[in-house]
Simulated scan of single mutants.
Amino acid sequence: MQFKAELWNQALPSPSVAYWAHSGTGLYEGKNKVDDLRLIATLYPETIHLVARKDADIKSVADLKGKRVSLDEPGSGTIVDARIVLAAYGITEKDIKAEHLKPGPAGDRLRDGALDAYFFVGGHPTGAISELATSSGISLVPINGPEADKLLSENSFFAKDTVPAGAYKDVAETETISVAAQWVTSAKQPEELVYNITKVMWNDATRASLDAGHAKGKLITLKNATTGLGIPLHPGAERFYKEAGVLK
């Protein structure tokens, strides 16, 4: 089966971005809603990393007050996720020395001692953070406790996550949260097309390819395909999941 370009090219936004676009909130506050966004599958978790300089004495999100912190660029999904995390701990951008840098420059400034911490959203281990941990040393700041629990209860597209010990050099196991990469399409796509694409996504051959590829491939499972939705399923995908017993 060949994928239509307009369908395939809409893969993998974070559910928070998809939710904001569909509901006209967050990054899309005051903009036109993207009402026809539909989900094919939730794929794998993208971990929220709060990377700190090893000697910055940042043990918790609360310790960011007064620190130099990059939240990522304006308009990015990361900056909105970062603001949600900060707000959960009673922190605003006025409480920190906020910078708005891409992860690469943020890592460079952290290495040079010009930045205390930065937010990054992505799977672990991430190459740039691994290099930084090896060359300069880092700490990962946990996002946990009652503040994180409240955040999770109020935002269904976040989930608990853990960066395992050793994912980055000399960094212990760290509790945090994640958002999931998702595969989305338009409600305008034919039901039969999306049904067949979803069916192929979960056949034995695809399973073997996912397991043999990137480490994240093993985390792409039928069991998780309908979790943390945020937006409606496409009717074609929904039909397959009901037939597969994933949905009632």
Rank of each mutant, 00 (worst) to 15 (best):
I231H: 04
A87M: 13
V171H: 01
G230V: 11
I96V: 13
L151M: 15
P235K: 04
D35C: 05
H214P: 02
N224S: 14
E243F: 08
D81N: 12
A205N: 08
P103G: 04
K4M: 07
Y19D: 06
A98N: 09
R53W: 05
K218N: 09
R38L: 02
E6T: 11
L219I: 02
N155Y: 12
E243H: 08
T176P: 10
V184I: 15
E175N: 10
L86M: 14
D204P: 00
N32R: 01
T226D: 00
A205H: 04
E29R: 12
A205K: 03
K102F: 03
T176S: 11
L64R: 06
A167M: 13
G24V: 09
A172G: 12
L115C: 06
G228M: 13
F240T: 09
V51P: 06
S14G: 14
F157Y: 15
D57M: 04
L71D: 07
S76N: 12
E147D: 13
D57Y: 06
L27S: 10
G245F: 08
G145N: 02
N196E: 15
A187S: 15
I40V: 15
T206G: 00
E238N: 05
G123E: 12
M201S: 08
A62L: 12
D161K: 14
Y44Q: 01
G113I: 11
L64W: 03
S209M: 14
V51K: 01
R207M: 02
E154Y: 07
K102G: 01
L101E: 10
L132E: 07
T198R: 02
K31L: 14
W8M: 12
I96Q: 03
P232N: 04
K169C: 03
L115N: 09
G127L: 11
S23V: 00
T126Y: 13
A117L: 07
G30E: 02
K150R: 14
S153V: 07
V171F: 09
S60C: 00
I48A: 08
A133Q: 05
Y19E: 06
V179Q: 10
V34H: 08
G107F: 09
G236N: 04
I96R: 06
D149P: 03
K97D: 11
Y118R: 01
P105S: 01
F119H: 10
P125C: 08
L219P: 03
A117C: 10
P15Y: 04
A82G: 10
A159C: 05
R83H: 07
N196K: 14
S16A: 11
R68C: 02
I48P: 04
G77P: 01
I40C: 05
A133L: 03
D211E: 15
E29N: 04
L50W: 03
I96S: 07
S186P: 06
K97F: 06
I48L: 15
A56H: 05
P45Y: 08
A98F: 09
D72P: 02
A148L: 11
E191P: 03
I40D: 04
V141T: 04
Y195G: 03
Y168S: 10
D211H: 01
G75F: 00
A5P: 11
S135N: 12
Y89S: 09
N144S: 15
E191F: 00
T25E: 10
V121K: 00
L229K: 13
S178N: 12
L151W: 07
T226N: 10
K223Y: 02
D211F: 00
